[in-house]
Every structure is written in structure tokens, then in C-alpha cells.
């Protein structure tokens, strides 16, 4: 229950931030709603002022905006000539597919590398931890450009646009670096615990010890990080979509920012916040699966 209230609070906050942004932006609000779209007649302009209640006090406008959002009405994009919810609905699946493929790749990489390199020879560990630092430092968009140059233009292995694999790899690099670091730290701490000695003394192989006993303890911080990374990756998708000319939420948002199409910008912010809230709720549930001790806590 408390969890739900907190999520609702965060979403309400995001709506408020979007509303404040609209009114902080220089220029008349009605012009921000119309955006850079030619062919809006004065009559339509009057209609917008009336619909949004722009001639009424700010508080009334705020309440009416909240009401619209609650009904799933994110306004109208005059630049694209369609409702914002439809523009987002069209763009979201491609970006979600990209985001979750990238997170999936990052998780697989992190699990394999962490399990194989935790407490191994210093040079092996050092090699991978250097690679992770570089991975976190490489700008996502530049790595995308490199992949594109090597695989599409030089080796002709992947289509220059539209494919899912290359953009997902570009997007996965930074999360993979962060996840591997956290997982290996957790695993190394776990492997120093007395219960590991117990497990080994029962004749369990090294690999089984790592997988069955170490990993479970290392997973909790990694799961928290993953929840946060889903949001981060969803946001970073904008640059990767630009590099690979891939349609999606990022391209929609970028077009809206340069075209001063405020309803779309606000809509994207709300939807991204919604995805984050859902992801962090799932993370909370996963916690209980991984660590049974959390299940016995008094329900809150």
C-alpha cells in the first residue's frame, strides 16, 4: 500500500514538473502548445485557449491538466496533427524493445563476466575492470557510430538502419560496465563469507559455489541498479535512435524539442516516468523472490 502511494506520488510529481516546465518556458503558453506548426487558424487558437482554460487562473489550469492526464488525455500535437497519446503509442514499442534488449544483453554479460572473474587472478580481473571503466566512459552515441562504421559500412553485416542488434549493443555497453562492477563486488564479498567455506567443505565444486551460494547474495544490489538502469537506458535511447536513424520515443521527443511541440515533450516525460515506476515496482517484487527473508517482514 505504502509502495503504491509512493509511486502515485512520484507520478503526480512528474505531472507537476511537466506543467511547471510548460509555464516556465518563454513565450505564450498557447504558442508552445501549437508548436512550430503552420496553418493553425485564429479560430483554432481561440479553441485551444478555451480547451486548456488558458484564460483562467493557474491553479484551475493545473487541476484541469491533472484531470486530463488521469483520463489518459495527454493533449494534441498540432505539429503532427494527432493526439499525443497516439504519437507516443506508435513510438513506444520500438523504444521499449530496444531498451529491454539492451538491458538483457547487459545482464547476461555482467552475470557471465562477474561469475568468471570474481576473485580470479589479478591480471584477468584487472583486464576486465579496465574494460568496464572504459565501457562506462565511452559515449553511447560514439560507440554506436563505431559499430555502424565497422559492421554496416565496412563489413556489410548489418543493415545501416532499422536493425535491433547493433543499437542494442551500443546501448548495453554502459549498463553492462556498471552491472559487472556491482555484481563482482557483491560476489567477492559473498565469497568471503563463512557459509562459503561450509559449502566448499561439503565438497561442492567452485563453480557450483559461485552460482548457488555466492550469486544470490550478489544479486540484490544488482537488481536495484537494474531498475534504475531501465530508466536511464530508456532516456539514452534517444541518442542511439538518432545514430541509427531508428524511429522511436527518442526521435519523437527530439523532434518535439526542436519543433517547440510542448505537449509531446510533456507526454514523453510522463510516459518515461510511468515506465520507471513500473520497473521499480517489479524490482521490489523481485527482491522478495531472491531474498526470502524480506517476505516474512510485516506487510506494509
Amino acid at each position: 500500500m505504502k509502495r503504491l502511494a509512493l509511486s502515485a506520488g512520484v507520478l503526480w510529481g512528474a505531472v507537476t514538473v511537466a506543467f511547471i516546465a510548460l509555464h516556465l518556458a518563454p513565450g505564450k503558453v498557447v504558442d508552445l502548445i501549437i508548436g512550430n506548426s503552420p496553418g493553425v487558424t485564429p479560430a483554432v487558437r481561440q479553441q485551444i485557449i478555451k480547451d486548456y482554460g488558458l484564460d483562467r487562473p493557474l491553479l484551475v489550469q493545473y487541476v484541469s491538466y491533472l484531470e486530463h492526464v488521469l483520463r489518459g488525455d495527454l493533449g494534441h500535437s498540432y505539429r503532427l496533427q494527432i493526439p499525443v497519446s497516439r504519437a507516443i503509442g506508435d513510438a513506444l514499442p520500438a523504444t521499449l524493445a530496444l531498451t529491454f534488449t539492451a538491458i538483457g544483453l547487459a545482464l547476461i554479460f555482467a552475470l557471465v563476466v562477474a561469475v568468471l572473474t570474481a576473485h580470479r587472478r589479478p591480471w584477468l580481473r584487472g583486464l576486465f575492470s579496465t574494460a568496464e571503466t572504459i565501457g562506462v566512459s565511452i559515449p553511447t552515441f560514439w560507440f554506436g557510430i563505431l559499430l555502424l562504421t565497422v559492421f554496416s559500412f565496412t563489413l556489410h553485416l548489418a543493415p545501416a538502419a532499422g536493425g535491433l542488434v547493433l543499437p542494442a549493443i551500443a546501448l548495453a555497453v554502459a549498463p553492462a560496465g556498471m552491472l559487472t562492477q556491482v555484481l563482482r563486488d557483491g560476489l567477492e564479498n559473498a565469497l568471503d563469507e563463512p557459509f562459503i567455506v561450509t559449502a566448499r567443505s561439503r565438497g561442492l565444486g567452485d563453480f557450483a559455489v559461485r552460482l548457488r551460494h555466492g550469486l544470490r547474495h550478489a544479486l540484490l544490489p544488482a537488481i536495484t541498479l537494474t531498475g534504475w538502469l531501465i530508466g536511464l537506458t530508456l532516456g539514452s535511447a534517444v541518442v542511439v535512435e538518432q545514430v541509427f536513424s531508428r524511429p522511436g520515443l527518442g526521435q519523437l521527443a527530439l523532434g518535439a524539442v526542436t519543433g517547440k511541440d510542448m505537449p509531446v515533450v510533456m507526454g514523453v516525460v510522463l510516459v518515461v516516468a510511468l515506465v520507471y515506476v513500473i520497473a521499480s515496482t517489479v524490482v521490489d517484487l523481485l527482491y522478495r523472490v531472491v531474498d526470502p527473508r524480506l517476505r516474512t517482514e510485516a506487510p506494509s
Binding site: L6, G9, V10, L11, G13, A14, T16, V17, A18, A21, A25, W228, G231, L232, T233, L234, G235, S236, V238, V239, G250, A253, L254, A256, V257, K260, M262, V265, M266, V268, V269, V272, A273, Y276, V277
Partner: peptide, 17 residues
């Protein structure tokens, strides 16, 4: 908390908007 929910790039786009 609210800022956590709006990831970096998205928030940056909102600011630049």
C-alpha cells in the same frame, strides 16, 4: 524521488525545451 523517475536524457530534453 521525482527526478529519479525522469532519467537524465529525458530531463535534459525537457530543460532544453
Amino acid at each position: 524521488d521525482v527526478q529519479m523517475a525522469i532519467p537524465g536524457m529525458t530531463l535534459a530534453l525537457l530543460v532544453i525545451a
